[in-house]
Design a binder for these strands. Structure first.
Length: 218
DNA sequence: GTCCCGACGT
DNA sequence: ACGTCTGGAC
C-alpha cells in the first residue's frame, strides 16, 4: 500500500504544473473560492471576467455594491443569489472586523483563523482551506471531492472519514510547507479531471497497478 | 441528461 | 441522510 507521500511524488513525476490557483490577487482567490463551489471553473472565469470588466474586483466595492448588481455580474457561476449574498457578507466582515485587509484576517494563528472563517456564511471547510492556502499562503491542506475519490479508490481512505479526519491525515504526513500543499492539491485536481474521473479512465492511469479500484475492475 | 475545485437547512 | 441553491458546457 503506497503512502500519501509516495502518491505525491508519483503525481509530481507525471504532471508538470506550476503552483496553480489562477488569480492575480489574494482577493481574487477568495472570490474564486466562493464562486467555484459545486461549479466548474470555466463558469467561474466568466463571472470573474464580468467583475473585472466592471472594475468591481475589489473588496470595498463589492461590500457596497447593490446586491442585485453583484448577482448579475456573477450569474454565470451559478447559485448566484446565494453566492452574491455570502460574498458580500464576507467583504463586509473583512471591512468591519479587519479594516478591509485580507492579510490582517489571514495572517493570524492558523487554526484560529480557520475557525473564524468557518463561522462565516458560505465558508465551509474546503472554502476556508482554499482561502488560507492560496490567498493567505498558509499551510492548510485542502480536501475536496477529488481528494476523497482518488484516495478512496487507491484504498487509502475508507469513505467513513469526515473532512477534518482527512485534512489531519494529510497534514500529519506531509511537511507543512505552503508550496508543497499548493502543488499537491493542484496535482490531485488535475489527475481527477484527466483520469480519476467519476467515470474513470483506468487504462490510461499511472496508478492502475497499485489502485484498488483499477485492479479489482480488471 | 450529467457534471462541475460545496454549503446549509431540515 | 437528503433537498435545495443555479448556470453553462458537453
Amino acid at each position: 500500500m503506497p503512502t500519501i507521500l509516495e502518491i505525491y511524488r508519483h503525481l509530481g513525476q507525471e504532471y508538470c504544473l506550476d503552483s496553480w490557483w489562477p488569480a492575480q490577487s489574494p482577493f481574487e482567490v477568495a472570490v474564486g473560492a466562493f464562486l467555484t463551489q459545486n461549479t466548474n471553473w470555466h463558469n467561474v472565469e466568466k463571472a470573474l471576467a464580468n467583475l473585472r470588466e466592471a472594475e468591481a474586483l475589489d473588496l470595498a466595492l463589492l461590500a457596497d455594491m447593490p446586491l442585485a448588481q453583484l448577482e448579475q455580474l456573477i450569474r454565470p457561476s451559478g447559485f448566484f443569489r446565494q453566492k452574491a449574498q455570502r460574498l458580500q457578507h464576507f467583504c463586509r466582515y473583512v471591512l468591519d472586523q479587519h479594516g478591509g485587509s485580507l492579510e490582517d484576517l489571514l495572517q493570524r494563528d492558523l487554526e484560529q483563523t480557520r475557525n473564524e472563517l468557518l463561522t462565516l456564511s458560505g465558508i465551509g471547510p474546503e472554502t476556508a482551506d482554499s482561502i488560507l492556502l492560496y490567498a493567505g499562503q498558509r499551510p492548510s491542506f485542502v480536501v475536496d471531492s477529488y481528494t476523497r475519490r482518488f484516495f478512496g479508490r487507491l484504498g487509502l481512505l475508507t469513505g467513513t472519514e469526515n473532512y477534518d479526519d482527512i485534512r489531519t491525515l494529510f497534514m500529519a504526513e506531509v511537511n507543512r510547507e505552503v508550496p508543497l500543499y499548493q502543488h499537491y492539491h493542484a496535482l490531485i485536481v488535475t489527475h481527477c479531471k484527466e483520469r480519476c474521473r467519476k467515470s474513470p479512465l483506468c487504462s490510461a492511469c499511472f496508478f492502475k497497478d497499485i489502485c484498488d479500484y483499477a485492479t479489482q475492475a480488471a
